[in-house]
Write a protein that binds this DNA or RNA. Structure first.
Lengths: 320, 320
DNA sequence: TTGAAAGCGCTAACAC
DNA sequence: GTGTTAGCGCTTTCAA
């Protein structure tokens, strides 16, 4: 026994499938009486619309693709959460795709297009082939958290955040501050470092930046720093995720250093321990991206824009 | 200009749509030469299969629904991560649905059925109406993390975990241990409390259990405990999430108490601070659920079963 | 080895 | 107001 279809309901009501369809859509040219009967019968029979068929016929879909590289990264899961709420209220579903690398690749796009998504929110910057494909397929796309030359993007004020963090650590008495960035390929990693370096130079200090790459992880970097001659007494980390790893490594070695993170994920995921970090309004960050996306889905053809989300410092003092 | 379809490719190749379809599916009755031409042309034209249409025709889909109440809960996002990897390798997509409550309701199922999911992994226990609907729609379903009478479920050894936690806290010198549970409606919350109470009684101690409800949160509970006459010197919390909230509250009040959590989310999300917790193999937990689901999708009609995932204690000592 | 036709479930256009 | 017809893009069946 298969799923109940329009036809089944039509047969039970003694009318045509078309009539049932329009009654359920609340079309104006169907009599109130018919609408009533149809709805009751559909309900009783447990009819549920096949939205794939509906989408095929209507030529649109109601699903948005989200592309990231791992939901283990709390930044992605938290942002995904905020988008979920908004999307649900707009009647969209929400399909999560994983890329195998830190960029959005052609094969990711193939999957997304194939799944019939009507738009894409990508946490990863599309590489060249992926960009071509997205353009060719006319897939409305917003890059969230990374810069993108060809697509709309919504990014944090990373340079500003880096400045805030560096200023804060110096204002608290640090005499040397190092920056521990993520991969160099991530513009946000570079930008935060740029803001940091800017402040360091302004204070007459030598910036000391480290980046994750094929041969180094946050763990190896912090070990290297601890073995170096000129040890900084404070560390600005790419994000809270990295900062917690660094704190863990420090505590295991019994070393005390001031550490500042980025993202204020503690706001959503209560952790023990107060750590200075850079925060922002995540719901509004998510909504900025979605609003852009909806504009594109509705056919906006204007040039790609980059919106910048303001950030602020979150310290023990300002907590609560 | 719309998306490239089979027809378009067919026209370009000078053969029929059918032929293209079968060439791309690598059907045995298409000549190698044709296959070659078709594939090259399809590639050049940027053809991407419309899997909605394909699914409609074939009567199946390649998407699995995941139902939870919030990705802010790291348990859900971490488990979702582990499922994502396995699902991807099996060629499934992955649609996330949010329920508005802590149970899985009829309207959630409507959405999931409508979206054409071929199976459901629910982190939430279906209520009665939802259960009826799932059965009526013959939706293959596995409940993950909660018990369910009518559906397959894969749960942790919650009672055992509660015992381990209580035993551990007592072995470390605690003279009174309280349990801070989540909602009573969650069987896992009750079960962890049951294991805990069991051990307490065996030690001749009075169990002291608190549960979140309409009028209380983890915060209010910990405040109540701190104001009570007979203050326990150790706390067993429903999960790490709760435990971190409790630790935070304690630290703000300058109170020292041993706290034990559940889930070992630090394994995936490195946090600062070592806290005893109850851990388990999350990949295998996720895979148990998915394997059950695949059995059902493939047509297994046997009675609903409950699988139990073993747990163990994670303490500073074993954290190497 | 390939093509033509039918139909998955739905809705838009038009006829009555 | 309601029914009939056609067709979204694909795959299956059957004929050539």
């Amino acid at each position: 026994m298969k799923r109940i279809t329009l036809k089944d309901v039509a047969k039970a009501c003694g009318c045509s499938a078309n009539c049932v369809s329009r009654a359920l859509m609340d079309a104006p040219d169907i009599s109130a009486a018919t609408k009533h009967t149809v709805r009751r019968t559909a309900e009783e029979m447990g009819y549920v619309i096949n939205s794939q068929a509906s989408a095929l016929r209507k030529g649109n879909s109601n699903s948005i693709a989200i592309l990231c590289d791992s939901l283990l990264n709390p930044f992605y899961s938290v942002m995904t959460h905020y988008m979920q709420s908004t999307l649900k209220s707009r009647g969209y579903n929400f399909v999560t795709f994983y890329s195998e690398r830190e960029t959005c690749e052609e094969k990711d796009i193939r999957q997304i297009v194939s799944a019939g998504a009507s738009g894409l929110i990508s946490f990863l910057a599309p590489d060249q082939k992926a960009s071509q494909m997205l353009t060719k397929q006319k897939m409305p796309t917003v890059v969230l958290g990374r810069k993108s030359p060809c697509f709309d993007s919504v990014v944090l004020d990373n340079v500003g955040g880096g400045r805030l963090a560096a200023e804060y650590l110096l204002s608290r008495g640090a005499t040397g501050v190092a920056y521990i960035g993520d991969h160099r390929e991530m513009d946000c990693s570079l930008d935060r470092g740029e803001g940091y370096a800017d402040v360091m130079k302004r204070h007459g200090l030598q910036p000391q930046s480290y980046f994750v790459d094929r041969n180094s992880t946050f763990q190896t970097i912090i070990r290297d720093i601890l073995q170096s001659e000129t040890q900084p007494d404070a560390l600005f980390c790419f994000n809270d995720f990295a900062a917690y790893i660094v704190l863990q490594e420090l505590s295991e070695r019994g070393v005390q250093k001031a550490v500042c993170g980025f993202d204020d994920i503690r706001k959503e995921l209560s952790f023990y321990g107060k750590m200075p970090t850079v925060g922002y309004d995540k719901q509004s960050f998510a909504d900025k991206a979605l609003n852009r996306l909806f504009l594109r889905i509705e056919g906006d053809k204007s040039q790609a824009v980059t919106e910048i989300q303001p950030v602020w410092l979150v310290t023990e003092q300002c907590a609560e």
